[in-house]
Design a protein around this nucleic acid. Structure first.
Lengths: 204, 204
DNA sequence: CTTTTGATATGATCCAGATCATACTAACCT
DNA sequence: AGGTTAGTATGATCTGGATCATATCAAAAG
């Protein structure tokens, strides 16, 4: 059992370092796969989706970030470009801080720096888990694992049903499956009594 | 173009903090998926393979670590358990340091701490890349990307042929494909002039 | 040199999940 | 209420890569 560690930086502290707020409409692209990174980003309100789009326009969702979570950090540290694009999944507000200021902030503050190291470690764990799933298991196992991770990631209790705020399409794009396959798999899980569907919404 | 940043800790420094050397035979398991972490590990000689084994005994290789590289860090930071097992891929020597000492070392030394943050960021990038590949592309694309990453990761020049020190089976286990598929794909790449095969060895 | 072992090679068959097509449902808007 | 849209549902068909089977090759070991 792993407790939820939320590693966001205090908004007032960010503002003191010169951070600014920005609001975007659903669908707005904050940055693209391949771009260089200039800012540290943190979600204040709404949801940010980080994803790759392949040749044929199919999406792979690397992660969905909610209020309090930061996103797009790797390039700030390793100097490379973004491995995925960031898109506002609904209207949302973010706070961002210039890269140089962010790095200085870390240098001045061990606790915050260590917090980021922890965040990266957790992300790495999620990615290890999902790539294992995608490469070794079938739809049922993949979807089950994703749903479990989803619950764990938002501090929901393992043993009781929670409403899953993901569309079938999103689940598909996070597990490397097609919508139809996810829909069929979820129905199958319902038939087996592993989850509930109510007005199309999934409770797991 | 990304330059290779090697983020290992100086061996003498590790020894000063109480680290110890250990030698293992090919096949020795250093720790298992699910175990709790007690040590920081760094390869001195040989290769360490981190992998998951699924229900039917199929392997997924999360990474292969060579001299100078550290491995199995995430659980040291986030307090969770290992997401994969570590196995000596050939006879090898590693140096390890107790978790508490390692964390104190980071606390005392910003440069080293930041180096780890960078390492985690690079690993995260590799995983983002591979999970995108595995979920969105076919064998040809996946193998090509893996080979490119392999070269980049060891500072080989993009434009000239380098010998790839990976078996077809390893390539399969890193890309979520079967040996036969990898063999056929590599032949196909040879026919298309994208690589050379000499006595079974791949030059890319 | 011969044997053994681990890796590469290649054809034949099969099947889970993708793809295609079409319909239904829920929620929101005016 | 009717209309619009985004998401869910379900059947029919197709196919790329898995699986199975068997052969060959290369290097190490005896």
């Amino acid at each position: 059992m792993q407790k939820q560690v939320n590693c966001d930086i205090d908004v007032d502290l960010l503002l003191a370092w010169g951070a600014t707020f920005h609001t975007y409409q659903r669908g707005h692209v904050l940055f693209c796969e391949g771009d260089l990174a200039h800012f540290y980003y943190q979600v204040v309100e709404g949801k940010i989706k980080m994803c790759n789009t392949n040749d044929e326009g199919r999406e792979f969702i690397q992660g969905i970030f909610e209020p309090g979570e930061s996103f797009g950090e790797p390039p700030l540290f390793d100097g490379g470009s973004y491995p995925a694009s960031a898109v506002a999944d609904e209207q949302c507000t973010i706070i961002r801080l210039r890269k140089e200021n962010f790095l200085q902030l870390l240098k001045d503050n061990f606790e915050i720096h260590f917090c980021f190291t922890q965040t990266l470690a957790r992300r790495l764990r999620y990615k290890s888990l999902m790539s294992k799933e995608i490469s070794s298991y079938g739809p049922l196992h993949r979807v089950t694992t994703l749903l479990q991770e989803y619950k764990k990631g938002r501090g929901m209790k393992e043993n009781e049903l929670s409403k899953i705020e993901l569309t079938r399409q999103q689940i598909a794009d996070m597990t490397g499956l097609r919508v139809e396959t996810v829909i069929r798999t979820i129905r199958q899980m319902q038939d087996a009594g592993n989850l509930k569907i109510e007005k199309g919404k999934v409770y797991f």
